[in-house]
């Protein structure tokens, strides 16, 4: 059963970026890694286990003690990594690392434990290799995060919670603006922009570096 309270930002980010359905494609593999890394960092900043501080022109990720140790293995893994680094590393370096550290599989495995995903194995007919697949345990739950964001944008009748506002920023940054704003009423973008503009500085920094990393990926073609 889940070892962390749900729903979590990183789970929602996984379902938005990596889950493919009729209404929304999955993004490129490297962008999934960057998006999940940003979500995990933001989640730990929000819960007080990490902080982002500017120093000499760099946005450094620093371990914080005010939130206590994370209660789940995913958060604990990253927090311990941050603590074990001899020097503080900047947000772009952590995003880069999390993109190559197979955060997608780690998150998917975690979601299997949480009962949100089902792990499967497929044997390749030609190569004989076993490929691990992850499918949503419930398609409606898999669509829920994006549907929730779209509900905010279509009704525009109340303020979004902070983490949902960050999830919206993340959805835009990974290139899913079309899925987000398609058939939304006039004023939806202004409503969203109003929320994004007042994101706390650490989340703004993570959002900005995620956007830049995705653009770098497009320029270099490093997928």
């Amino acid at each position: 059963m889940p070892d962390a309270p749900t729903p979590r930002l990183v789970y929602d980010a996984f379902l938005i970026t990596a889950y493919h359905d009729f209404y929304k494609p999955a993004v490129a593999p490297r962008v999934i890694g960057l998006g999940l890394g940003a979500a995990l960092l933001a989640e730990l900043v929000f819960s007080g286990q990490l902080a982002v501080r500017s120093h000499a022109g760099r946005d450094l990720v620093i371990a914080e003690s005010r939130g206590g140790p994370p209660r789940d293995s995913l958060g604990l893994w990253l927090t311990e990594l941050v603590q074990s680094e001899p020097e503080h590393l900047a947000v772009p370096e952590w995003l880069e690392y999390l993109a190559i550290a197979d955060t997608q599989t780690k998150t998917a495995d975690h979601m299997v434990v949480a009962g949100l995903m089902v792990r499967g194995e497929q044997r390749s007919r030609w190569l004989g290799k076993v490929q691990v697949t992850y499918d949503a345990a419930d398609a409606l739950i898999a669509q829920a995060p994006l549907a929730r964001l779209r509900r905010y944008l279509s009704s525009m009748d109340r303020r979004m919670p902070l983490l949902d506002a960050f999830l919206l920023a993340l959805t835009e940054s990974v290139g899913l603006s079309k899925s987000l704003y398609s058939q939304m009423p006039a004023g939806a973008r202004e409503y969203a922009e109003g929320h994004l503009r007042v994101l706390p500085a650490p989340l703004q920094a993570i959002r900005g570096h995620l956007t830049a990393a995705v653009a770098d990926t497009a320029i270099t073609g490093n997928l």
Partner: peptide, 24 residues
């Protein structure tokens, strides 16, 4: 600034130079 332009633009909008925002 290419890919990093949004970071610079956000800092400009906040009227704070990049990386000089102090503790976050």
């Amino acid at each position: 600034h290419g890919a990093k332009a949004p970071l610079v633009q956000a800092a400009e909008r906040a009227a704070v130079p990049v990386g000089a925002a102090g503790d976050r």
